[in-house]
């Protein structure tokens, strides 16, 4: 997983932070700010350049007339963006990206939640189930793409192979489908391996969430006469919404960056699995730097829509501490 983020990172605050730092002397202005600033300054400098500086440089490139490997021909400002948004193929790839993200989110959340729920109260062999459910996330998309490329082979009928073959052998011919070569829904097939890889991760998040709920809450629920279902529905599930939010943030931002998996399964020229990241790569390889940079910026904006509100919320929360 090239860009997985540990859940711990983004799980909103657990209940054990309050007050303790309030009057802690550590918070009073320290003797000197120079030392901490000095220690962190290399990171700030490097990230300032490699994140913010390069975003600006990329924006700058995207405003120019630079469509070959030769030097830039001057500024055209938003022309490259206008061209992108009037290009059917780019709109199609944006649509694909949203569809993929929707399927990926839905799949991982549903499966991850279901598995966590099944394991929640402790079952025999829990560690085995957990390990198996979790293992695909250790594998790269490139490695898993090798086998999924096979499983998602789109031949049907006599020449079918992979999953279609299995469906045929099991008498489930109606399940046979063209997978990722379908013009409208092909991209959803790419979400299948992605869901396979990351549902276990979401399960681990939810499981941590379930286990983090104090036993007293359950007791209290039972006291109030809740049956098991009501207990889940009204007492436990609501406790998990912060976990679900983190899962959405993590899976969502990974999903918007999808690239490896498509390269491994369908390749860069295949039309039905175009997303902005693959187009960006194609434009880069032929030297259309301005268009490539513009696609990169569009991706950044899409991710920012998801991430910035979350970061702002986190920031506010930190300030309150």
């Amino acid at each position: 997983m090239s860009s997985t983020v540990p859940a711990s990172a983004t799980t909103p605050d657990a209940p054990h932070t309050p007050a303790k730092s309030r009057k802690s002397p550590g918070r009073r202005p320290s003797r000197s700010w120079a030392a901490p600033l000095l220690l962190i300054s290399p990171t700030l400098l490097v990230l300032g350049v490699f994140v913010y500086g390069l975003i600006a440089a990329n924006l700058n490139t995207s405003f120019q007339d630079r469509h070959t490997r030769a030097e830039s021909q001057g500024y055209v400002w938003f022309e490259n963006y206008a061209a992108l948004f009037s290009d059917d193929t780019f709109m199609y790839s944006l649509r694909n990206l949203l569809l993929y993200t929707g399927a990926f989110l839905l799949g991982t959340l549903v499966l991850g939640f279901l598995w966590a729920w099944l394991l929640e109260k402790g079952v025999r062999g829990e560690s085995l189930f957990r390990a198996v459910y979790l293992f695909p996330m250790a594998v790269s998309f490139i490695a898993s793409g090798v086998v999924w490329r096979w499983l998602l082979n789109n031949a049907e009928g006599d020449r079918s192979s992979g999953l279609n073959r299995l469906f045929g052998d099991l008498g489930l011919t109606w399940l046979q489908n063209p997978w990722w070569t379908h013009e409208r829904w092909g991209i959803v097939a790419i979400a299948v391996p992605a869901i396979w890889q990351l549902s276990g991760y979401v399960m681990a998040l939810f499981l941590a969430g379930f286990r983090g709920i104090p036993e007293e809450l359950r007791e209290a629920g039972r006291m109030d006469g809740c049956n098991e279902w009501q207990l889940y529905r009204h007492v436990l599930f609501p406790q998990l919404s912060p976990v679900a939010l983190s899962a959405i943030i993590i899976i969502g931002h990974m999903s918007l960056k999808v690239f490896d998996l498509i390269m491994a399964i369908a390749g860069q020229t295949n039309y039905t699995t175009q997303v902005p990241a693959t187009q960006m790569w194609v434009e880069f390889t032929r030297g259309d730097y301005a268009k490539s940079a513009a696609i990169g910026t569009v991706l950044l904006v899409i991710v920012a829509v998801l991430i910035v509100p979350y970061l702002v919320a986190t920031y506010r929360q930190e300030r309150r501490r």
Binding site: A57, N58, T61, K257, M280, A293, L299
Partner: peptide, 8 residues
């Protein structure tokens, strides 16, 4: 997304 910084 690293695509947004890749060219520079």
């Amino acid at each position: 997304p690293y695509q947004a910084v890749m060219i520079p």
